[in-house]
Design a protein around this nucleic acid. Structure first.
Length: 308
DNA sequence: CGTTTTTGACCTGCGC
DNA sequence: GCGCAGGTCAAAAACG
């Protein structure tokens, strides 16, 4: 129950924070102590109501099934006794070194956990939001590298961990599907990008590249919908809806994520277009409705009152 | 061949 | 202290 702490992937509270114009900005803007609210550019009609955030819809519980990690095998052999000494000495080692000394007392030195030991690991501000989508990993314009996946306690769905691939940028992202409503994907960002542009170097011309959700949020039309946020457990009979719009969904994915599709369509790079597209196809409110859940603030002090 | 994903092991924090 | 859950590492595999 710990409120909606980080662990549940969302916590939050939007309330008085003037949010940046897009998610991208969000990540680069230090979060104010308490609340967050959407206040997008261009007149912010949203300012007021956006605060009503459905906090923690992702109530974890119910069905279980740890093992979402299917196939695993045939690997370990070579790494058994592994003492992964990673000499990492090179660049970043400083602070770690000191601490390593301590822990290395027993040489195990899996420096991995490094940098923690002595002090409590300082967590970066986190920000979580939910997206109704069948695709787990939303393309937000940045390039991410998956570095882990874990089965989530009370959910049949695994949680994936991503790290921004830009050098020096330590932003992390966690993606998991709500066990309550499997159509909802909870994405949690941690840290701020150190690089200015979210433009994807590689997928250059792709629709996805410049048109992440950040842009969607910047789009007035999108915001319109966003403001009248749909309750998470909302109206539509989704199944029916899905069937009806199978095709459209596919299209939506193009915008939404699914890098693998690599739709290199260069035509629609503007958020507006993307949003329009979705809108026109009646997908915006169902498929791509994002609900800002707020940011997860660091433990201790803030944590609790943060929520409303 | 460089980059990304997969995945089991390991580490840390926390509750009991 | 122990066990659990979350988070991270890194070798190997997969991919482009």
């Amino acid at each position: 129950m710990e409120l909606l702490d980080a662990s549940s992937g969302c916590a939050a509270d939007f309330g008085g924070y003037s949010a940046p114009s897009s998610l991208f900005d969000l990540f680069q803007t230090p979060f104010p102590a308490a609340t967050v609210q959407l206040d997008l550019p261009m007149s912010s009609p949203a300012a007021g109501e956006s605060s009503e955030v459905v906090n923690n819809p992702t109530t974890p519980n119910s069905s279980i099934s740890s093992s979402s990690n299917e196939g695993g095998n045939s690997k370990k052999s070579s790494k058994d006794g592994k003492n992964r000494l990673k000499e990492e000495g090179e660049d970043g080692g400083e602070e770690e070194e000191e601490q390593d000394e301590e822990k290395n007392t027993n040489n195990s030195s899996k420096l991995k956990a490094k940098k923690t030991k002595g002090q409590k690991r300082q967590r970066e501000p986190r920000f979580a939001f939910m997206t109704k989508s069948e695709v787990d990993h939303l393309d937000d314009g940045y390039r991410w590298r998956k570095y882990g996946q874990k089965a989530v306690k009370n959910s049949p769905y695994p949680r994936s961990y991503y790290r921004c691939t830009s050098a020096g940028c330590g932003v992390k992202k966690r993606v998991e599907r709500s066990s309550d409503d499997t159509s909802i994907v909870v994405t949690t960002y941690e840290g701020q990008h150190t690089h200015p542009s979210p433009i994807t170097p590689r997928s250059g011309g792709s629709l996805l590249s410049g048109g992440g959700i950040g842009h969607l949020f910047a789009d007035p039309a999108f915001r319109d919908h966003h403001q009248s946020v749909l309750p998470l457990h909302h109206h539509y009979n989704q199944q029916h809806h899905h069937q009806q719009q199978q095709q459209q969904l596919q299209n939506a994915y193009m915008y939404n994520s699914a890098p693998s599709l690599n739709i290199t369509t260069t035509t629609t790079t503007s958020a507006t277009s993307a949003a329009s597209f979705l809108r026109d196809n009646g997908l915006l409110q169902d498929m791509v409705t994002c609900q800002m859940m707020g940011k997860v603030v660091e433990p201790k002090e803030e944590e609790e009152e943060q929520r409303f």
